[in-house]
Design a protein around this nucleic acid. Structure first.
Lengths: 99, 99
DNA sequence: TTCAATACCTCGGATCGCAAAGTATTGCCA
DNA sequence: TGGCAATACTTTGCGATCCGAGGTATTGAA
């Protein structure tokens, strides 16, 4: 799962803001259990992405529980597109080698 | 390039024995330049794979230059099949998430 | 003879995924 | 009422791994 977490997180936020825990659940759902990221993976990754200017966050409250809501910045959208293209090229190249 | 080196190396050796330098060249050729692994990546990886019983090696000589020839063991072939299946599942799951 | 290519080895930094442990709140159920 | 599961976030530290950089040695071409 190394090196692809950023792409997965950015992709998951593509359709709208989510908080950390929500990202984990959505990713697990989308991938039918294949991607069940540990919190120790996701939260630091979200911090990194925000520090890199690809995400912005704001505190909200839902059911008395505090939530930090993340959403893509415009730079984040650009980076998402870039990383998706990169993934396609990478996946294609692997496919060529392994088959 | 993290986490996929083993699969690429095993795949490259699938069609016959090769030495380290040769693996690098073949991989670069197969992938049309996409995978140009550093020697500091490949040699330690080959040692790891041999230590894990997936490869076996023997010294040979070609044009006065010493070469360490690596080839898949039967366990290596099994592992290759396993990792290839794993890759397919992984790639498919990523595809679902990013599209 | 000097340099590029071939071929190998090794050290060290930097990154990263993740398990683990901690805090806090809400709501269910016995 | 008490306790436990689920929700939600944070931080620490280990282990793995990629790779840049530097080192050794041989061959052959310029």
């Amino acid at each position: 799962m190394k090196g692809h977490v950023d792409l997965l997180l950015l992709s998951t936020l593509r359709t709208g803001p989510l908080h950390g825990y929500g990202v984990v659940e959505k990713l697990r759902g989308l991938s039918e259990g294949a991607f069940d990221l540990a919190e120790g993976t996701v939260y630091p990754a979200l911090y990194r992405l925000e520090a890199a200017g690809l995400l912005s966050s704001s505190w909200t409250k839902a059911n008395g529980r505090r939530r930090r809501l993340y959403e893509l910045t415009s730079r984040g959208r650009g980076e998402l597109a870039r990383e998706r293209d990169e993934w396609q090229a990478f996946a294609h190249a692997v496919e060529v080698v392994v088959t």
